[in-house]
Design a protein around this nucleic acid. Structure first.
Lengths: 358, 358
DNA sequence: TCCTGGATAGAAAGCGCTTGCTATCCGCTT
DNA sequence: AAGCGGATAGCAAGCGCTTTCTATCCAGGA
């Protein structure tokens, strides 16, 4: 029924071992023999049995990529970059590695389950993208699982995530400088003259959310007057609304902010998608951007430059980071010293921010 | 070193067979025994060896999803939907299936290579998304490969692709009605009074490109005066520019169209991303949308409603289609009669189209 | 009391491949 | 001319699991 290695061997009049060696190309085989084997493979339309190979060789060529939301370009761009580097069919390395993109939907359980599934497959490497959850129990579970995987020889790369706290595991980390990106963005707004700035934050329990928000408040504190700067400060809390990283959240939160503080002159969003929702809400309320109110985002996703007016935002080099993560995953690049590299964020000033006119 | 089934068996004082049965849960095991086994699994932190299972059972729980560009929400949305349905950790079925998203980058070779890789892994099912290449040789190769896979028991689903021509293989197909979507869009423009309509098409060799363009020309032909309607008609060719499905292509093509025919009153783009580029080019040229010129896209990606003005486009139910493909892939849903279901496209009229004023 | 059969558990034969070790063949060196 | 070692090829032992077939146990029926 299905063609096996021995069938090929029989047809080429060699032993199965020889066929295996021709196919894996890591052992000398005489040119003539190789030809014969290759021809037999072709004649029989033979395809190696992956599970059998992996079992026998105790290795696999799967590379897992965990993302929060595959429909979000933020993750899509990174995943694509990883994939181009890891040497799958599309990869530069030209190997036969296969990237497995796993969609956690931001759920901690799924994240863990996927980790187990990948562990089952004896994945060669793992790239985790996106912010982590700030839940000690979950963090511990993740660390433990990752440590196990690392011990088993799986290379682990965190891309756009904060470094693991405790785990002594060898994990390469590429972390975005969300905090200073957030700070610079707000500094820009302050420099323009804004004083009352609303902030539409991401989900409370995410590290990314917290870091960006901290950057924002750092800037305010540095600029500022006594009571505006301290995290947890009542006034600042008043001007901050949390929600998921979605357009709808940006829309609703903006309406809420306007209700709380009609005198806002700027709104900073947790990311570009949220900013789009915020802009829509402002338009619907008849406010002009940036004349009546400024808007800023974060990430600089491809569509941000096409918003009207173009969105001021903080650019994260997603593709570059993903590519580097891919290289780290394959061992094509050395891990950064200390295991952690911080990736800088760049402020992109565009049309959606301007000096306040009131 | 690594814990195996027998280790667990030894600890639970049962045979490896029993452990396997507990883990797979398809054979009666006394409750007490099961408990003991589960406890041993837990104590030892045992994780099943995927390759070994797949080899022994001659099946796998991998589901492959082929996409052209994972960074493009068009594919991301479908892939996400497939993934939610196939019962991975995030899936409703709650199984342990694992979705493998493979990025072909639109390259025929990579497509074929990924197919081989998935065949190697003995994938349980395969979902191919995106338009196909109109190259007879490649189409034949794909058909052959898919037929082989289907024979081997892999369920094949085409999502948003034209049905396979020749292959007698059992393949379920969900195809978008690009042609009538394209037709309806252009009819809308014609009804508004537009007569000189530029068309920024996708890459020539893609079925999607051709179908949308044919719909466009069908509408012109039906509406129309002698020489404007026939495909291949010189005048129409003059008003059509091909390029990739990118923003940049939309930008450049629009400039080119404006050069060729400064009297255009509307531009139809191959998809929303291209439309965004077109709109940017028009703005840069100082043309107002829709006052001076109308713009329309295709797909209705999430950002389209946030364009300013909101983009008139053709909505493709990407999520629904992906979800259905996922169900077909797991066998949770019956294949449509004849194996092919056509998915309707819906015209979304928004602010970017208006009657011409010249 | 003996037999029958349902419910569990175990023994063991692979699944298809990789790889360490061994065997063979030759052309050279000594 | 005998001996050697490099270059190839084959043997065979698993890799860790699933699954068929068989064994055992015990309750209930005859």
């Amino acid at each position: 029924m299905t063609v096996t290695l021995s069938d090929v061997a029989a047809r080429a009049q060699v032993s199965p071992a020889t066929v295996s060696r021709v196919l894996n190309g890591n052992y000398p085989v005489a040119a003539a023999t190789r030809e014969r084997v290759l021809k037999a493979v072709d004649d029989l339309d033979y395809v190696l049995n992956g599970p059998a190979s992996s079992l026998a060789a105790a290795t696999s060529d799967l590379v897992g990529i965990l993302v929060n939301d595959i429909a979000d370009p933020f993750f899509g761009i990174m995943a694509g970059a990883v994939q181009s580097e890891i040497g799958g069919p599309g990869g530069r390395a030209g190997g036969e590695r296969m990237a497995v993109v796993c969609n956690t939907g931001g759920s901690p359980e799924r994240e863990l389950t996927y980790l187990t599934l990948l562990q089952r497959q004896r994945a060669a490497a793992l790239v985790l993208t996106g912010g982590a959850l700030e839940d000690p129990a979950h963090a511990a579970a993740m660390s433990a699982k990752l440590a196990r995987l690392a011990d088993a020889g799986t290379r682990i790369v965190l891309c756009g995530r904060p470094p693991l706290e405790d785990s002594g595991a060898a994990v390469a980390t590429l972390t975005f400088d969300n905090r200073s990106g957030g700070r610079r963005l707000t500094e820009h707004l302050l420099a323009l003259g804004h004083r009352r700035i609303g902030y539409v934050a991401g989900p409370v329990e995410r590290t990314t959310t917290r870091h960006r928000l901290e950057g924002h408040r750092d800037a305010l504190a540095a600029a500022g007057a006594g009571n505006t700067g301290h995290a947890g400060d009542a006034d600042q809390d008043e001007l901050t609304v949390h929600g998921p990283y979605t357009r709808a959240s940006g829309y609703d939160a903006t309406l809420e902010l306007l209700r709380r503080a009609p005198d806002l002159t700027a709104i900073v969003a947790a990311n570009d998608t949220v900013a789009l929702g915020a802009a829509a809400a402002l338009r619907d309320r008849g406010l002009r951007i940036p004349d009546d109110i400024s808007v800023a985002g974060f990430d600089d996703l491809p569509f941000s430059v096409d918003a009207v007016p173009a969105l001021t935002t903080v650019r994260l080099p997603l593709y570059e980071a993903g590519a580097r993560a891919g290289r780290l995953a394959t061992g094509a690049e050395e891990a950064p010293p200390g295991g952690v590299a911080t990736i800088a964020a760049e402020l992109m000033v565009r049309g959606s921010t301007a000096p306040p006119c009131r």
